[in-house]
Computed example of a mutant assay.
Amino acid sequence: MTALSPPPPAIAQAFRLALEAARALAGATAPNPPVGCAVLAADGSVLAVEAHQGAGLPHAEAAALAACRDRWDAVHTLVVTLEPCNHHGRTPPCSQAILAGPARAVWIGARDPNPAVEGGGAQRLSAAGLDVAFVVGPLAAESARLIAPFAMRATQGRPWLTIKQAFTADGSMIPPPGERTFTSEASLDLAHALRRRADAVITGSGTILADAPLLTVRRVADPRRAPRRLAILDRRGRTPAAYLAAARERGLDPSLHADIPALLADLAEGGALEALVEAGPTLSAAFLAANLWDERVVITKAARAGDPDTVEIVPRAKAA
């Protein structure tokens, strides 16, 4: 980077703002990944922070630059959570938008993992004379996790799978008689946040028959515009038609599947980046046994009333 570049603390803070903006849209951008971008002046002051809002809408870099039109001469550095695209899709390449502006430097959080994309945005920007650098350490790790569902679909052909399980203090996933849940308010908020960031919820016909769950996002704001998929594993066709109709009225897009591979292939083909498994013990165990999971969220009810639940988030890479 040039001597006139923003100081490192300003770059780090800008990345945190860009990551926060992108995370707020996770679950609303499929089949595109969530991406955040901040624009800085040479002294490190933040001129704009924007995130990609969804497929067909401006990418984060273009949106952030557009927000700086009244301060065009002050634009110096862009920080972006994902390598700027260098191909024509529904929108023009972000590398083109950057080169059309006054930016002199670009900091990038994660490389584009899509093997179908020819040529890298970073290479094009560097060849055009811009200073280009990739962050390292925690910011790089956070950027990689942000696009992990996109990378999974691009490289493995399936959505990122998060398995959420809630247990009573004695290890049961079954709520007490007459109750639908047993975890704390904070744990319920977490469950709805996990559901919000997913493009699809996976459950089984047994759960449908036992609880008729709503499986909608209610406790947190949901920016998603398209219906969220509800994929039901139902080998015997037991899911009531009335439940499917009610799910559609709630804004869901339900579908029935005879086996897990077909279910995952259908979700991937439909553009889903992340699916949340919210199911009973049998189906959850089937995903775990098949090693079809990427992150496991385990909520355990405290044994003593009033104590907080225990929440453990386990990435598969660390569990292996």
Rank of each mutant, 00 (worst) to 15 (best):
R219A: 08
A231P: 06
A212M: 08
A258P: 05
A212C: 04
P240K: 10
V217D: 04
A246G: 12
G237L: 05
L230A: 08
D234I: 06
I260G: 03
A265H: 14
P227L: 08
R218M: 05
R218D: 07
A247Q: 06
D259I: 03
D259H: 10
A265C: 10
R235N: 07
P213I: 07
L263P: 04
A246R: 15
L252R: 02
P227C: 06
E249P: 00
R225H: 08
A242M: 05
A245T: 15
D253K: 12
L263M: 14
V217Q: 06
L264G: 00
A212G: 05
A212T: 11
D234Y: 03
A231W: 07
R248E: 15
P227M: 05
H257N: 01
A262W: 09
P227T: 02
P227R: 07
A241T: 13
L256T: 00
Y243A: 04
L264Y: 10
R236L: 14
L256W: 04
L215E: 04
R250M: 08
G251N: 03
A242T: 14
L214V: 12
A241D: 15
A226H: 13
L256F: 00
A258I: 11
P213R: 05
L252M: 02
R238Y: 10
A265Y: 10
I232K: 01
V220Y: 10
A221W: 05
R235D: 12
A231R: 03
P223G: 09
T239N: 13
L233Q: 05
R224H: 09
P261V: 13
R229E: 13
R219F: 09
D211M: 04
A242K: 09
A247T: 02
R250E: 02
S255G: 15
P223D: 12
L244T: 04
P254C: 03
D222Y: 09
D211L: 11
A242Y: 04
R235F: 06
L215P: 02
A212N: 15
A212V: 06
I232L: 15
A221D: 13
L215H: 01
S255N: 00
A262G: 15
Y243W: 15
R238G: 07
L230H: 08
A242W: 05
S255C: 04
D211G: 04
H257F: 08
A247W: 06
A246V: 08
R229P: 06
R228Q: 15
P261G: 05
A265P: 11
G251R: 00
A210Y: 01
R228V: 09
I260W: 01
V220R: 12
L230R: 08
L230C: 04
